[in-house]
Nucleic acid binder design. Structure first.
Lengths: 155, 155
DNA sequence: ATAGTAAGTTCTAATTTAGAACTGGGCAAG
DNA sequence: CTTGCCCAGTTCTAAATTAGAACTTACTAT
C-alpha cells in the first residue's frame, strides 16, 4: 500500500496519518508552533535534507495545514504559516510532548515547559470529556461503530 | 540524519517520534487499542507488508510499548499486548482521531464514536489543564525553556 | 567584483518499502 | 499418511524514498 492510499481508509487515525504521519512532517509542524516560518529556519533547525524539507512543506501547503505568505517581492519569498486546520493540531503536539516528557525523559528534565496563561501555572495536558469536563482515562472510553463505518477494510 | 538519531535531540516531540513517528507504527498501536493482539490480525487488517509489520512489532517491543506474551507452546506463539507505556499513548490516539473526524471527514461522519462511560455521553476529547482543569486553547499556552534544554540543536 | 542570503533543484549512492513467494512447526480431514 | 490449512515470520527482487552534497537564481550589501 502506498502513502496516499491510506487516506481512503475509513479510519480517522489513518486519514490523519496520511497527512501528518511522517517524522519530518510533525517536526516541521512542531517548529511552526514555536514560531518558525521560513525555509532556512526549518532547515537550520531540523536535520532534514533540503529535498525532503521542500517536499514536506509542499505537502503541508497542499493539505491546507500551512499557507504560503509572500513577505518580500524581488525576489519573491514566501513564509509558511499555520492555518486554522494546522493550529488545530495543537492538542496532538501537546500530547506527543507530554508522552515524551514522561517516557523518553532526558537527563535534566523536560526541555520545554508550558504555562497555562489563563490560570498562570505550568501544566501537563490532560484528556478531558467534552460533555462532563472530567478527565478521561483509557478505561473510561468505549468505542462504538459510528455512521461513517461503511464497507470497512478496518475493524 | 537517520531514523534513530532523532532520539538524541533535546525535544520531547522528536524523542517521541523516534519511537512512534511512522505511519504503520501508529496504525499498529491504534489497532492494539481496538483489541488486536496477533500478527495475522494486524496483517489482515492493515495493508502493510509482512516484512514491515514484523519490523514494526519488533521495534515496539524493544521500545517497551508492546510486550510479547506466549499464548501457545508447540509451536511457540506470542501475542502482542500494550504495556503501561503503550496504554499511555491513548490521549495521542484520541487526539489524532478527533482531528481526523473534524478535518478529514468522511462521507457519512465519523467511523467510530467514543463513549465516556463515567458520564455516559458520546464525547469529543478536549485538552485540559492539569492545574485548573479548564480547557486549554493554543492561545492559552506559553512555552518556556525547561531544565532539559541543554546544548540544543533545536530552539 | 566579491560575498552573502533565501529558497529551492539536481545529482548519485544508500536505505527502505512493496509485493509476492517461501519456511517450518504443528493441526485436522479424507 | 498425505494433502491442505494456520500462524508467524523470513527471503527475494524491483521500485520508491532518503541522505548528503553541490548547484541555481534572483537579489542585496561591502
Amino acid at each position: 500500500m502506498k502513502w496516499q492510499e491510506t487516506s481512503e481508509i475509513p479510519c480517522s487515525v489513518a486519514r490523519t496519518l496520511s497527512v501528518i504521519g511522517d517524522r519530518w512532517t510533525l517536526l516541521v509542524i512542531r517548529n511552526a508552533f514555536l514560531g518558525m516560518q521560513r525555509y532556512e529556519q526549518f532547515h537550520a533547525n531540523l536535520g532534514v535534507t533540503r529535498h525532503v524539507l521542500a517536499d514536506r512543506l509542499g505537502r503541508l501547503v497542499e493539505a491546507d495545514i500551512l499557507e504560503k505568505v509572500l513577505y518580500q517581492q524581488r525576489p519573491p519569498r514566501y513564509e509558511y504559516r499555520l492555518t486554522e486546520k494546522g493550529r488545530d493540531l495543537h492538542p496532538i503536539l501537546m500530547m506527543l510532548t507530554a508522552w515524551g516528557d514522561k517516557w523518553m525523559a532526558q537527563e535534566h528534565g523536560a526541555p520545554l515547559l508550558f504555562k497555562h496563561t489563563a490560570c498562570g501555572h505550568v501544566f501537563t495536558p490532560k484528556l478531558a470529556c467534552s460533555e462532563c469536563a472530567e478527565e478521561v482515562l483509557v478505561s473510561d472510553v468505549s468505542p462504538m461503530i459510528g455512521p461513517g463505518m461503511g464497507k470497512q477494510k478496518h475493524a
